[in-house]
């Protein structure tokens, strides 16, 4: 089956192996534009690897990745990225960091913007991030949370088709982290952007996302469990999440707790091996094509 969704991100039959180690194993995924998609999974299952493939830092061993109808190459301005660390350039002031994209290549398809205008626009972003008074500082003079806000502004100013984030709040203390979560939600609502957010914090993923993907190597299929089987991670569950008016209070509701317990079982329990045909892929955009070896008869 070919995925039929003209816009958005499509990952189809993607494999990624390092040497003989298969990390991603025949992965299928479709994300529509405007979705806040979070990705969780056990440590080392390949979350960052999938993100790097979408980003174009690495190429899939097989399969294809398409964004809004076009195959993806090396990293460019179509995709934004916020890493856990090192997203900012230490030699540039905050405002120069944010305006850098406009001063370099400019937005895809638009003229290069003169220096003064790009600074003015960067200033607007900083104001929205509540960072205006720090415009002249260097990154090392900011707290971790502020640095991540600058990094988000720096990416957003390019108006990327999708913003990728790899554990962006992983290095922050719990309070700052919660602030940043609310902040990001607010921003996402305003901008209606597509977010692909990797975290290993289940609460964070369930709280933020409109859709939560569980990537895991803990499953089974018709290839069996013999010696020669070298299985990599698949998306083993795909939940649509209600986007209701929220506060952080929802984190304490029973439904929220149940969902997290369910995800923990589906993806994080090495003893709980679902068959690939039984994955919980009820999300309307979910799809999965299994090979004949994976699903016999």
């Amino acid at each position: 089956m070919t995925a039929s969704l003209d816009n958005g991100l499509i990952v189809e039959d993607v494999y990624k192996a390092y040497g003989s180690k298969v990390v991603l194993d025949n992965l299928d995924l479709r994300v529509r534009n405007g979705e806040f998609c979070t990705l969780v999974g056990p440590s080392g299952c390949g979350k960052s690897t999938l993100l790097r493939l979408i980003l174009g830092e690495e190429q899939p061993s097989a399969g294809r990745i398409i964004l809004n109808g076009e195959t993806l190459g090396p990293p460019n301005a179509r995709r934004g990225i916020v890493f856990q660390r090192y997203s900012l350039f230490p030699h540039l002031s905050v405002i120069d960091n944010v305006s850098l994209g406009l001063r370099l290549g400019g937005r895809p398809g638009s003229e290069r913007i003169p220096a003064r205008e790009s600074r003015a626009e960067a200033m607007q972003y900083l104001e929205r991030m509540r960072l205006a008074e720090h415009a002249g500082k260097y990154p090392h003079q900011l707290s971790g949370g502020m640095q991540q806000r600058v990094a988000i502004a720096q990416s957003l100013i390019m108006k990327p088709e999708i913003l990728l984030m790899d554990e962006p709040f992983g290095a922050l203390d719990p309070d700052t982290r919660e602030d940043m979560q609310l902040f990001l939600l607010e921003l996402w609502e305003q901008k209606q952007m597509t977010l692909f957010f990797v975290t290993h914090d289940l609460e964070e993923a369930a709280f933020l996302g409109t859709r939560i993907l569980v990537l895991s190597q803990y499953y089974t299929d018709d290839r069996g469990n013999g010696d020669g089987v070298n299985r990599g991670a698949k998306i083993v569950a795909d939940h649509q999440l209600p986007r209701s008016p929220f506060g952080t209070g929802v984190k304490f509701s029973p439904e929220f707790g149940d969902l997290i317990a369910q995800i923990r079982e589906e993806g994080f329990n090495p003893a709980y091996l679902q068959h690939a045909r039984d994955f919980n892929l009820k999300h309307p955009d979910a799809f999965q094509t299994l090979t004949e070896l994976e699903l016999r008869g």
């Binding site: 301005a77 995709r79 290549g105 720096q154 990416s155 390019m158």
Partner: peptide, 8 residues
Amino acid sequence: TKALTLGA
């Protein structure tokens, strides 16, 4: 990578 995503 970051610089490339900023269009450098």
